[in-house]
Amino acid sequence: MELKDTKQTIEVIKQLVQIPSPSGNTGRVITFVQKWLEEKNIPSVITNKGSLIVTEEGKDTSKHRVLTAHVDTLGAMVKEIKSDGRLKLSMIGGFRWNAAEGEYCSVETSDGNMISGTILMHQASVHVYKDAGSASRDEQNIEVRLDEVVHNAEDTRALGIEVGDFVSFDPRVEVTESGFIKSRHLDDKASVGILMSVLEKLHTAGETLPYTTHFIIANNEEIGYGGNSNIPKETVEYIAVDMGALGDGQASDEYTVSICAKDSSGPYHYGLRKQLVELAQKYDIDYKVDIYPFYGSDASAAMKAGYDVKHGLIGAGIDSSHANERTHVSSISHTEALIYRYITALMPKE
């Protein structure tokens, strides 16, 4: 199976990030993934919670593996319609308001209409507000300026907007000539695109995996419980494919696959982590082992839910997580390669 060419993976990621899917409103992107898979003759099922599962039967059906990536993203919900027709927001997921300030957005009404706007400080104008730079970036001061003629709350409601409507952020995706892909929502649609690409390449090559392997496209990770259900009882290994967080003191970068040793939930399974490192070394896959101090994954959520599995976490290195994110095609490539080498490898003997 050819692993070097990531053009297809990047194109899939570009399509994914442009589909609004804040946690709680992911039906459109899950449908996109399922139809994409159907075109490749890859069957899938959608669960009651709205996630998607692809099962590849392996030579050994007594031991199963699970890989998961999440398609839900950060976003917001209309908290209040102000007297001037602008909107106050309630946050979906763990970001900081300053990371969304100035971003274009879309409000989805209950009848499916998308109304554009901009997320701004109420005190945005430096010519009017003395505290434009110093005022707190919080739910009291951040608001949505709609791109419609509205003068009051009644005008806004006449557009069909109400409290509880979802607000998604414009991804502004771009792939540079130097190989960077920059966009919101690379957490975790970069990983979803990688799993989709691996699945297609497996089917094209007609490969049978050594163990039955389930690919879960989760849809509630950003709020804490994405992939901790629908895990078959035969599962012995569970890997979350999610971003590697970059910053001061971190080992990960935008050019390698990040293998997590520990996050805020505690250490990941040591034996599984060592296996991933050995595979990377054996197949010349560039990697970094890292610790993420303020992080949790679907794998750690599964552990908290009580599943008796070995859990791991790998992913592309993503700069500026939960803000204007970026990674490099080389990181995508190395992550894809490690996933393939893992799912085609035998489990170590105890």
Rank of each mutant, 00 (worst) to 15 (best):
91 M>N: 07
69 A>G: 03
72 D>Y: 04
82 K>C: 07
90 S>I: 08
100 A>C: 14
136 S>R: 14
96 R>Y: 11
70 H>Q: 06
92 I>V: 13
79 K>H: 08
93 G>E: 02
121 M>H: 09
106 S>H: 06
100 A>T: 11
76 A>P: 00
130 K>F: 12
120 L>V: 10
73 T>P: 03
71 V>L: 07
133 G>P: 09
110 S>A: 14
117 G>R: 02
102 G>F: 13
75 G>M: 03
76 A>S: 03
137 R>V: 09
86 R>I: 06
94 G>H: 04
100 A>V: 15
74 L>G: 02
103 E>C: 10
109 T>Y: 04
80 E>F: 09
130 K>N: 15
97 W>P: 01
109 T>Q: 04
77 M>C: 07
117 G>L: 08
123 Q>V: 08
105 C>V: 09
71 V>P: 00
103 E>M: 11
75 G>T: 04
85 G>I: 02
81 I>D: 00
119 I>Q: 06
110 S>H: 12
102 G>E: 14
76 A>T: 02
125 S>I: 02
120 L>K: 09
95 F>Q: 05
137 R>M: 12
134 S>Q: 11
102 G>D: 13
77 M>D: 02
88 K>C: 11
71 V>H: 02
82 K>R: 14
107 V>C: 03
89 L>T: 01
102 G>H: 13
126 V>E: 12
93 G>C: 05
100 A>Y: 05
106 S>L: 12
74 L>C: 01
94 G>L: 07
119 I>K: 09
70 H>E: 03
110 S>F: 10
105 C>E: 03
76 A>M: 06
128 V>L: 15
93 G>Q: 03
101 E>C: 08
78 V>L: 00
98 N>H: 14
103 E>D: 12
94 G>P: 03
116 S>P: 05
75 G>K: 01
121 M>D: 01
83 S>V: 08
112 G>R: 05
122 H>G: 01
116 S>G: 15
122 H>M: 11
136 S>P: 12
91 M>T: 06
93 G>T: 04
69 A>D: 00
103 E>F: 08
84 D>W: 04
106 S>Y: 05
114 M>K: 13
139 E>V: 12
102 G>T: 12
81 I>S: 03
102 G>W: 13
115 I>P: 00
101 E>L: 09
79 K>Y: 07
115 I>Q: 03
95 F>N: 04
89 L>Q: 01
77 M>A: 09
79 K>P: 02
136 S>C: 10
106 S>R: 04
73 T>V: 05
72 D>N: 04
98 N>S: 15
128 V>S: 15
92 I>W: 00
116 S>M: 15
74 L>E: 01
115 I>M: 07
121 M>E: 06
130 K>D: 15
85 G>T: 02
87 L>F: 05
73 T>G: 01
86 R>L: 10
134 S>I: 09
77 M>W: 01
135 A>Y: 07
106 S>E: 08
88 K>N: 14
96 R>D: 11
113 N>K: 15
95 F>E: 02
121 M>L: 15
136 S>L: 13
127 H>Q: 15
84 D>Y: 07
116 S>A: 14
114 M>F: 13
78 V>I: 06
107 V>Y: 00
122 H>E: 11
113 N>T: 11
77 M>S: 06
83 S>W: 06
134 S>K: 13
77 M>L: 11
101 E>I: 05
128 V>Q: 14
